[in-house]
């Protein structure tokens, strides 16, 4: 996994998170989570998962969906899925 690829994934995730959560892209950082973001409720969480699935062409399992507890974990999860796909 190249660093460049990780940066691409991060950039796409920033767009997804800022769009779904209706926040400025500058507010998206690794620690962003339902604990510090008022808009991140269960509905938006599912929308995040849907947008991630659609954007990266993956299908997160329910277990992985539940494990996305913050933005950093979202990057890690997508990286794993994308690499896993080869």
């Amino acid at each position: 996994m190249s660093k460049a690829k990780k940066e691409d994934i991060r950039a796409e995730l920033v767009e997804i998170f800022s769009t779904v959560l209706e926040i400025d892209p500058s507010e998206v950082n690794e620690a962003l989570s339902p604990d510090n973001c008022e808009n991140w409720d269960s509905l938006r969480h599912m929308q995040l998962c849907t947008a991630i699935d659609e954007s990266f062409g993956i299908a997160l399992s329910m277990k992985k969906q539940i494990e996305i507890l913050n933005f950093d974990l979202a990057i890690e999860t997508v990286l794993e899925e994308v690499c896993g796909k080869g």
């Binding site: 767009e15 997804i16 769009t19 779904v20 209706e22 929308q47 849907t50 947008a51 659609e54 954007s55």
Partner: peptide
């Protein structure tokens, strides 16, 4: 036809 498009257009 993705959620992101609907979200942005909807807003």
């Amino acid at each position: 036809p993705k959620l992101m498009t609907y979200l942005k257009a909807g807003r």
